[in-house]
């Protein structure tokens, strides 16, 4: 369970070049967009790529991302329920 969250944080830091963040800096329930990590629309597109590449989940509607990329917890829940790899 928590392994998935840790790995997810590592991937996000790496994929989105969040150089000034460590895994410990990101709380599971912290907002990813807006004030939290300060991600933007290009990051959201990168997260879609990440879901597909690492977990075999394909989001076809950009709208879906908004409901999933709320926090690490929300993303992990979605991945557990939908992953194909």
């Amino acid at each position: 369970m928590s392994d998935l969250r840790t790995r997810l944080k590592q991937s996000i830091i790496e994929q989105l070049n969040l150089e000034e963040f460590e895994v410990e800096d990101i709380a599971n329930d912290e907002a990813l967009f807006g004030d939290g990590l300060g991600l933007d629309s290009i990051d959201a597109l990168e997260l879609i790529v990440l879901l597909e590449k690492e977990y075999g989940i394909k989001l076809t509607e950009p709208q879906q991302g908004k409901e999933i990329f709320i926090s690490i917890d929300k993303m992990a829940e979605y991945i557990e329920a939908h992953r194909t790899k």
Binding site: L16, N17, I42, D43, L45, E46, V49, E52, K53
Partner: peptide, 8 residues
């Protein structure tokens, strides 16, 4: 896999 963050 294409990266939007690269393409931009």
């Amino acid at each position: 896999t294409v990266s939007p963050a690269v393409f931009v």
